[in-house]
Simulated scan of single mutants.
Amino acid sequence: MATNQSIFNGFQVNRSMLAGGVVLTGIGSALGAAGTAMVCVALLAAGRNWLRNLDTPPTALAHRALHEARVASSAGWEAWRAEHGSPN
């Protein structure tokens, strides 16, 4: 009974098997974290290359969309004022 310890009237834990399970779980967790890091690095590199190869940068697209939204808002406001005869 050197490797087994009796706890709670008959519940016996094999300490060497428990320790082996803890070690294997730790190794598996480390491998999983390393794999996750590799996937993240690969996806970031692919995303950067994709952004570099775009014809129009995303910031230019955002500026264009904002300008179009401002023009549309202004046109709508002017049409509403013309319809309702508001001097403001």
Rank of each mutant, 00 (worst) to 15 (best):
G85Y: 02
G10P: 03
M38V: 02
A42V: 15
R81C: 10
H84C: 06
A82W: 00
S73I: 11
V23D: 11
I7F: 11
L43Y: 05
N49D: 12
S73G: 11
A72F: 13
G32P: 02
V41T: 14
V39C: 14
S29C: 10
P58Q: 09
G47N: 10
V39H: 15
N4W: 05
L43K: 05
A75W: 02
P57S: 10
L51S: 12
R48V: 07
R52V: 04
R15M: 15
R48F: 10
A79C: 05
A19S: 12
H67N: 11
S6W: 01
W80N: 01
R81W: 03
G28H: 02
P57I: 13
T59C: 00
W77Y: 08
A82L: 11
N14G: 08
G47C: 09
G26F: 04
M1D: 07
R70T: 01
C40A: 15
N14A: 13
N53E: 12
G20M: 15
S74P: 00
L18R: 10
S86W: 03
R15D: 09
P87K: 08
A37K: 09
G76E: 04
A45K: 06
G47H: 03
E83S: 03
L44N: 07
A62L: 14
T25A: 12
M1C: 10
H63P: 00
S73M: 12
L31G: 05
V13Q: 12
A46G: 09
A65M: 14
R70C: 03
S6F: 02
V23N: 06
L31K: 08
T56M: 09
L18P: 01
S86G: 07
T59N: 00
A33R: 13
L24H: 02
R64D: 11
N88Y: 09
T36S: 03
P87L: 10
A30V: 13
A46E: 08
A69H: 07
E68F: 03
I27A: 05
A34C: 02
M38S: 14
R52G: 10
A37I: 07
A65P: 04
P87I: 07
R70L: 11
D55Q: 11
G10V: 01
A2D: 11
A72S: 14
A46R: 04
N53S: 15
G35E: 05
E68P: 04
N14R: 05
N49I: 15
M1E: 09
V71L: 13
H84D: 00
Q12D: 06
P87M: 09
N53M: 13
G20W: 12
R48S: 12
S6G: 00
A19T: 08
T36K: 01
R81N: 06
D55R: 11
G10Y: 00
E78G: 01
M1Q: 08
G20Y: 13
